[in-house]
Lab assay of single mutants.
Amino acid sequence: LPHTAVCLVCGEAGKEDTVEEEEGKFNLMLMECSICNEIIHPGCLKIKESEGVVNDELPNCWECPKC
């Protein structure tokens, strides 16, 4: 993702460097949905019932829970 990318919900950049544990890092890193192209911190999504499908081949790419 470009350095200028920010979260659609909170308007902040990736914050994964501020935590140690892997789950915390994931919730604070910016992810781009391969379907709707929205860039968001997974932790900013209010959807709890399902998780997005992470694409292991492309960094910061997933199918968000909304899609």
Rank of each mutant, 00 (worst) to 15 (best):
C36H: 00
A13I: 14
L1S: 10
N37W: 06
I39T: 10
V6F: 02
A13Y: 09
H41T: 01
E32Y: 02
F26A: 07
F26E: 07
P2G: 15
S50T: 06
V19P: 02
L1F: 15
M29Q: 08
G24L: 12
E51T: 13
N27R: 11
E51W: 08
H41F: 00
E23C: 07
K46F: 07
C64L: 00
N60E: 07
T4K: 00
N37M: 10
E57R: 10
P42V: 04
H41S: 00
E20M: 14
F26I: 12
D17I: 13
K15N: 01
V6S: 09
V6P: 09
N55Q: 07
D17H: 13
E20A: 10
C10G: 06
L8A: 00
C36V: 00
T18H: 04
G52C: 10
P59I: 07
E21T: 15
I39P: 10
A5P: 12
K25E: 03
C61I: 05
S50H: 07
N60D: 07
W62H: 01
K46G: 14
L28M: 15
C33R: 02
G43S: 04
C10A: 04
M31F: 06
P42R: 08
I47H: 06
D56V: 09
M29S: 12
L1V: 15
V19D: 03
E21R: 12
D56H: 15
K15T: 07
G24I: 10
I39Q: 15
P59D: 04
P59S: 10
D56K: 14
C44N: 01
S34N: 10
G11W: 03
H41W: 00
V9T: 14
E21S: 15
L8P: 04
N60M: 06
L28A: 14
E23Q: 07
E22T: 14
P42Y: 14
K15I: 05
E63N: 06
A13C: 05
N37D: 11
M29P: 06
V9S: 09
E20P: 09
K15S: 06
L8E: 02
S50W: 08
E49G: 12
I39N: 13
M29H: 05
G11Q: 14
L45Y: 05
C61P: 10
M29R: 15
K48C: 07
T18A: 03
K48S: 08
N37L: 11
C64K: 01
D17F: 11
E12S: 06
K48Y: 12
N55M: 07
W62L: 04
L28R: 08
L30N: 08
V19T: 12
P59E: 15
C7R: 00
E22S: 11
E32M: 14
S34W: 03
I40K: 04
M31N: 01
D56N: 11
E32V: 05
G14M: 07
T4I: 05
C61D: 03
D56I: 01
K66W: 01
N55K: 02
I40E: 02
K25M: 06
K15R: 04
L30V: 05
E16R: 08
A13F: 11
E22I: 08
L28F: 13
E57L: 11
E22V: 10
C33W: 00
K46Q: 14
E51V: 09
V53N: 08
K15V: 03
M29A: 05
V9D: 05
D56G: 13
C61E: 09
E12F: 01
C67W: 00
G11I: 01
I35H: 10
K25I: 03
F26C: 03
E21I: 02
K25Q: 06
E51A: 10
N27C: 01
V53W: 09
P59C: 10
H3N: 14
V6W: 01
L30K: 11
D56S: 13
A5S: 07
E21K: 12
P2K: 15
E57F: 09
N27I: 06
E51L: 04
I40Q: 07
A5K: 12
E22N: 08
I40G: 06
C10D: 01
E49S: 10
C44E: 01
E49P: 12
S50G: 14
P2A: 15
T18E: 03
E49M: 11
N60K: 07
N27F: 06
G43N: 07
E23H: 07
W62C: 00
L8S: 05
H3Q: 11
I35C: 09
V53K: 08
E12T: 12
W62G: 01
C67V: 00
H41K: 06
I35Q: 08
H41N: 03
P59T: 11
N27M: 13
E21N: 01
L28E: 13
V9L: 09
C36W: 00
C44V: 00
